[in-house]
Design a protein around this nucleic acid. Sequence first.
DNA 1: TTCAGTTTGTTTGTATAAAAAACAAACATA
DNA 2: TATGTTTGTTTTTTATACAAACAAACTGAA
Lengths: 405, 405
Amino acid sequence: MSMPSAVRHINEVRVLDVVFRHGRVSRANIARELGITRSTASSLVAGLAEDGLLMEDTSEDDKSAGTGRPGTFVRLNPHHALFVGADIGVGRITVAAMDFAGSIVSERHFPLASHLDAKAVLRNLSASVREVVEPLSGSYGVKGLCVTVPGVIDKSGIVLRAPFLGWRNVPILEILTALLPEMPVIAAENDANAFAFAENYRNRHPGGDTEVYIFLDAGIGGAIISGGQILRGHDGYAGELGHMVLGDRGFVETATLPGSFESFIGRDAILARYRHHGGGAAGDIEKFLDMAREGDAAALAAMHDWAFYLGRGLAIISNIFNPSRVVLGGPVARLFQLCAEDILRNTRRNLLDDHPVPEVVLSTLGLDGPALGGASMLHHDMISVDEDLVFRKGQPNPAAARLRG
Amino acid sequence: MSMPSAVRHINEVRVLDVVFRHGRVSRANIARELGITRSTASSLVAGLAEDGLLMEDTSEDDKSAGTGRPGTFVRLNPHHALFVGADIGVGRITVAAMDFAGSIVSERHFPLASHLDAKAVLRNLSASVREVVEPLSGSYGVKGLCVTVPGVIDKSGIVLRAPFLGWRNVPILEILTALLPEMPVIAAENDANAFAFAENYRNRHPGGDTEVYIFLDAGIGGAIISGGQILRGHDGYAGELGHMVLGDRGFVETATLPGSFESFIGRDAILARYRHHGGGAAGDIEKFLDMAREGDAAALAAMHDWAFYLGRGLAIISNIFNPSRVVLGGPVARLFQLCAEDILRNTRRNLLDDHPVPEVVLSTLGLDGPALGGASMLHHDMISVDEDLVFRKGQPNPAAARLRG
DNA sequence: TTCAGTTTGTTTGTATAAAAAACAAACATA
DNA sequence: TATGTTTGTTTTTTATACAAACAAACTGAA
């Protein structure tokens, strides 16, 4: 560790973090918040401004609110960086671009033909990304791309499996690096993890809380954030909440295991249960929701069963993680609003009396959550301490260096 | 952050870590391993030696194995610090003392009358700790005590619940601080967490792997270590694996929930299942183990059922955490050796084909695991970076300061 | 034995960045 | 207009790591 540069790096990152959180902040406030002197804060700001990361903010909506000389404010230079998130969904690709200040600059959807092989999908994705990035690349410094996939990705950037895409052992990073050589950093991430990160990144709790994210669609995807970090497990398979086996058989035969959580509460399970209770073939979840809202008896009975197992699942999750919050997302999650009471009652029934019950909320992000999360993850990397540089051999992490470079 | 001291602190800690891992190491090797210059390594070693943390190792079993001038070796000064772990079990208190080099200096058991209230138990514990510490306090610098409890402890050091002790909302830290004013640091920890930490601390994996620990007795305690950190959750309730509800009813009525994991695989569940299959009243788990070893039909049938649900539980845990290793401990864990194949087959049956199955092993620590873990946790704190000092306001964490002071 | 080659640990000088202190600038209020 | 307060900059000091040079201690070959 080269001694001066390491502390300088830590302090630069901390300054960027403060400016990002406040949007607009004076040097004196930076100094107070970080416990450094004003002179050091000025020096750091000057250096970062020279590199184009920070800029003076001369907007006059001061309301300086107090005695003494008003501060001169700085903010992140939005044009310094552009982070691209691209989500590969079933039937479509979503591309989102975030600037250095954290604003979404562009967000677009592209249709994706099914039954394409992985290489063809990734060629489509590259073209979509280029279409979004090219008009922006003149005014923004494009720093990186994070692709999100509904599947398991290991540390070396290989998609081990993505059942809904029919992928197995796809070296996604290798392929994309060849397809997009101009992109300084390319990363890949599980879509549920990215969705969770997006939800967590804006209103994150200072103490580094534990939160669980459940994405309900045909399958059930899950992600856990603890201490600001995504739980990945040894090979990247962690968070497969939908595959927990809760009984000998569920409400429906699924692609996954008999009796799995998603065979009880996934989309197809609800529709099967609806038929079981005498309802017709609702066909899709929207129609089912309408039936339930209208008070259809079979729909209410199916929803009741759904609430029973979702409640039990939430109780298991509470016993294991004790999260402060569980965020539900995806098309099936909207059922939650119709039977929130029922679910929480079932959760409590499966917990010891004094066990804390997490707050359960619906995601505010739509279906673009994973793409936004991918972009957010790159944004976060840019204003995070490079652990390699500080704690290890002193050489910077190559990817981090390209992100900043 | 005072700039020089932060880097100095980081480097001191890294030196201590290297010396701890190697036991005996030359300055040049420290420099190589940390990527610092030999002069810096010498300076750091000199400072730490002056403070009494390190000492020259002049033992002549050199086998210097190579050309050039042999190095001068240093090692941790065992007498610089003594860390005490004290476990409150059902019917007994275990006290373990670890020196700064990581060796167990003393390990003793004290009987504990049941039906004492919390204050009386803690008075007993204080006396036991004093009995262990007093003969050592002349030659060791006593740095702290970590008490472990079979219950949930929140961040402020209050035992929220400890069913086997009959405790509820006991301010254990406050009481112990009054009882042991001479102890510089007092901490409290859940016994399963401490057990997990003890197992993980010695042969810890560099990359910060994910490991799950399950302690099987009357109840089932669990703990998860990810990235070297214990998962605690928002209020400290995380890791209650035994309370996962897997069915409508288990094999036995337990103190906890019907259908919970421990109502299927806890000690009483096995014995109940043994009776269910026509076996007599085995009475305790030792006898049951003997019957199973002898091939008693009822015992084998009960064991088969046990393996079924343990396998399912391990599969749930694998789906959620994807651990590289699951460590089983406690009196009931020895059943594992008799049906390891059966359990792993059931685990695989409840997982997708390509899902990695963790290595499942028996704990090598006996019943003293929690006490050793408590001591280990203090030892670890002493050779860890004080995040407050480096990343926050620059003032050191008060507890860390007392530990080092 | 002697000398070259190698590795270790120390010494000395240098560079970097943060803190401390002093100061000028910019405001509010009496 | 004077006073007090807060901000941002400048100057000096200090702590620490690095770089380079060097002496010490060992091996092995001539």
